[in-house]
Amino acid sequence: MTGALLELDSVSKTFTRGGLFSRTQVEAVIDVSFRLEMAKPEIFSIIGESGSGKSTLARIILALQAPTRGTARFKGRDLAGLRDGADRHAFMAAVQPVFQNPFEAFNPLKRLDRYLYATCRRFAGAKDEAAMQAGADKALRQVGLSLAEVKGRYPHELSGGQLQRVAIARALASGPSLLIADEPVSMVDASLRASIVNLFRKLRDELGLSIIYITHDLATAYSISDRIIIMQKGRVVESGDARTILADPKHPYSKTLKESVLEPLAPGERPLFAR
C-alpha cells in the first residue's frame, strides 16, 4: 500500500464566541499540516499544554468537527465530505478513539463485554453470538487479556490499567488502521503505565497500526514516539523525529517544556527545589 493514511493540509479551526454585538473569535488550531504514510505505521505524538489545541485537532481527525480552513484527508478522502451512512461507517471502523479516563469512558452499570460485542457486531460484521465472542476474544488477546477474564464483569471490578486495556481492545475490535489516543495513561497508575505504553509499541509492530498519541507528558512521548509535533496556542512550533527534537529542542517553547519536566533523580543529581 502506498499513499497517505492521514493527511492534514494547513488545517485551522476557529470558534466563535458571544452574540451579535460582542463577538470574539478563538483560534484553537492554526495552520497545522502533517502526513502519516500507509506503508509506514508509526506512533505520532502531539504534545502541548492545555489550551494548545491538541484535543481540537483530535476531534478534527476523528471527523467530529470540521476544520474552518484547510482539509483533512483519510486515505485520500476529504473528511468534510463524509455523510452519515456507509462512508462514515467505514471511516468509524478504520479510525478509533481511546479516551483519557477509562472510569468515565465506560458506563458503570453496563457489562464490559457488551461494549466489545456491540463494536464487533456493528463494525466487524459479526452476525451471531459466537462470531461476536470470537471477535471480542481476539481483540482482548491482542491487549494481553482474554474474554474469560472480562466476560460478565463491570467496570468497577477491574483496575485502571486493565480497564484501559479493555478500552483499547474495544477500539481494536473494529479492525482499525489508526488509533487516536488522547492522554491514555494519565489516569493509569505509575506501575501499570509502562505496560500500556509498551502495548502501543506492540500494536504498531505486530498489527501495523498507526497511533496518534496526544499527551503533555514528554517522558512517555520520548519513550514510544517515532515522530512528534509540539503545539503552542494552536500552532505547531516544532516537528520531526522524536529523539532528535526531545534531545535538543530548538524552539524556546519546546525548551521551556523540556526544562519543566520533573524527572526521577539520576544518581548524584541535585533536586531542583533542594534546600
Binding site: A190, A219, Y222, S223, K258, E263
Partner: peptide
C-alpha cells in the same frame, strides 16, 4: 518503570 528523556 519511569521513563526518562534520553534513556532508550
Amino acid at each position: 518503570s519511569l521513563p526518562r528523556i534520553g534513556d532508550d
